[in-house]
Amino acid sequence: MTRRQSVLRGIVLAVGAVAFLFPFYYMIIGSLQTSPDSTPGGAFPNPGNLTFENYTDINSRINLMRGLLNSGIFTGGVIVGTLVFGVLVGYALAQLQWRGRGVTFALALLVQVVPFQLLMIPLYVMIARDYGLADNYLGMILPFAINSTAVIIFRQYFLQVPRDLFDAARIDGAGELTVLRKIALPLVRPAILTVVLLTFIGPWNEFLWPFLVTKEASMQPLAVALANYISNVAATAANPFGAVLAGACVLAAPAVLLFIVFQRHFVSTDIGSGVKG
């Protein structure tokens, strides 16, 4: 590896990092400006132009706490559903012999490439109209209730556990549920955090589906409330960009912080195996 090559590589990586991070930096700066300053100088904090007004402004238009709470319930419901049912299927797929196992595994792979856009209209008719679950947390959660990528990650983890371990417990007289609870669950604890992180980004950032099923502002997740603000009322605010960016910071912060804190658990091999199967 020559010196010139490693310098070149450093430049490529640094340019990449700036391109990825600058918009986030600009989002924070912009959310703190009294009046939007889009000159190159505006990219640096100017003490005379700093304010928290944008945050109170956006909070008076859309209830930020309510939005965060709705996003939290939506995301939490999906995570709980995925963890509970995903572990069960993952275990059954990796360690048990039963009719339909191959089909179930094939389905878990297949549903990941079924485009949501085709299902959007029928799901809307079913959930919002036939079941009357519009403006309802259950209606929001239902289409995402079990993340199939998580099922495959759990299966992958359970495959790494030697089968003899389970057989030994069965010989000792443990029932299937005891085996699952006492042996399987403790062994996949590392997978749980990965699955939580991976599942989190789906519903937290999802816009299209909750946008379709929530019309009532008090039920909207923050992403939907902010999007409605951007497309409808932003023009009437004193500093529309500032208010939008303040809302964007509030929406982005939980996801970004979570991933910075737990970045070790969001590693390429897990994700790779989850997608490739």
């Binding site: 918009p23 986030f24 600009y26 989002m27 912009g30 939007p36 889009s38 980004i201 937290w204 950032n205 816009f207 992403a223 939907v224 902010l226 999007a227 951007i230 960009f241 939008v244 960016l245 809302g247 964007a248 910071c249 929406l251 982005a252 996801a255 970004v256 979570l258 991933f259």
Partner: peptide, 14 residues
């Protein structure tokens, strides 16, 4: 990992 809706705000500004 960030919501499209959030980063859309910055792109509109940029």
């Amino acid at each position: 990992v960030t919501a499209s809706v959030a980063v859309v705000g910055v792109w509109l500004f940029l």
